[in-house]
Design a binder for these strands. Sequence first.
DNA 1: CGTCAGCTTGAGGGACGTCAAGATGTGTGG
DNA 2: CCACACATCTTGACGTCCCTCAAGCTGACG
Lengths: 250, 250
Amino acid sequence: MTGLSQHTGKHPFVRKIESIALFALTEDERAALHALPMQVSQFEPYQDIVREGDRPARCFALLEGIACTYKTTQGGKRQVMAYHVAGDIPDIQSLHLKVLDISIATINPCKVGFVQHDAVRALLRAFPRLGDALWRTTLIDAAMVREWMLNTGRRDAYARMAHLFCELVTRFGVVGLAPDRSCEMPMIQPELADALGITPVHVNRTIRELKEAGLITLRSRRLIVHDWEGLKAAAEFDPAYLHLTDPDEI
Amino acid sequence: MTGLSQHTGKHPFVRKIESIALFALTEDERAALHALPMQVSQFEPYQDIVREGDRPARCFALLEGIACTYKTTQGGKRQVMAYHVAGDIPDIQSLHLKVLDISIATINPCKVGFVQHDAVRALLRAFPRLGDALWRTTLIDAAMVREWMLNTGRRDAYARMAHLFCELVTRFGVVGLAPDRSCEMPMIQPELADALGITPVHVNRTIRELKEAGLITLRSRRLIVHDWEGLKAAAEFDPAYLHLTDPDEI
DNA sequence: CGTCAGCTTGAGGGACGTCAAGATGTGTGG
DNA sequence: CCACACATCTTGACGTCCCTCAAGCTGACG
């Protein structure tokens, strides 16, 4: 089912909104979403799509690739707060918050669709239920950051790493990028370090521990989970915070 | 101005919505907010108002006191993600997310006003702009969690502590609880530890360092900032993430 | 004036950071 | 198909921040 929708010409963000809305979209709503004027552009890896301090007049949907939301300290230390996959609309908050408090960067080559705020506002005026659905996506994003916060604040590097892998495999699975719990892992180790709040060296040692425990293998950008239950246990992973309709749908 | 509004009979959450909305409320909107049927109840310190896993049919506004949002690991470790003051509506997310991913507890005696979801939904249907304002509050809450995440992930205990004090003094100031940058600090040290992702013992040592640096004093539940610029510098504190209309309004 | 919650401090340990060197892998040009 | 360059990974040695355990101390309150 997940796989199919990728070949029906549906915009990935429409699929995402459908999966997140607590109601079935009408034909009109679906048509209006597809009719949104969208300027598509391609980004190289490690490019900022938007930057902290920006005052954007548009937001964007990620159509292909993996991106991340991050913030930096004045000293240049970087903390990644979320990863994004096809269908996500990571900066929808800019609709209501003038100044961005975050930056969003690509991890690998990404296709991005920009939509003017005015067009979104007009859409939401015409179809208020879509506003509820979008509000809901921002609430889910917030719930994911809170789980990450619990992670960095109160779990050690081993559990944090396991947790991140659990989330990635689950979320990649939803969009068809992780059949049988293995997936491409475009993030390099220093990037994982920024997501976990540790150093690249310690990422390396922690991955080794996860390998030695027989939970995963990770080679040439490919993550394979050998012991899903074991990995979940090490991470204390409970997918409830992702608010998926079917958490085990992989 | 801030002080005055406390004596005009306005519900604190109406003041908050007014300060956060990007437009001026009409008389009708204000009246509808005040007319919301609200069940007021009083909570002792250290009580949960709502708990992770709940499926509430109502949300609440904090009318008096200080509360906190937190999550726990299976091992019982606790991470506080946000503090709340009078006017905040910390679980408004429950309007769109059936199952709560967080718990919210009181820090000191709190007065709380519960409102049924149905009443809120009716209100938002009648006054869609209020929905935008509430959406905006949830986005600001999310921005605050992200700043905390940067804190715990990428700053040491000293800067984290300073940052927390900066945020508290600023936010307490907005609601009239911190004239001249000093305020009651009802959180005890183990609680601060849960907010910072460190241990109570280390909280103690870190506070001592802040005192020795001449930045603050903290005695018998009272925080006094002696060197605001110094404290901000130690914390790299930039109030932009709070999205206040006037960040220096104290 | 005793009791108890909360604060303070010391000593020792462990998780993670830092620095630095080498190994492995991957892409490119010849 | 090889040679080379460069990115990324890997490992070791050592340092530090923060944790743990445990003992006093202080202050509020009955």
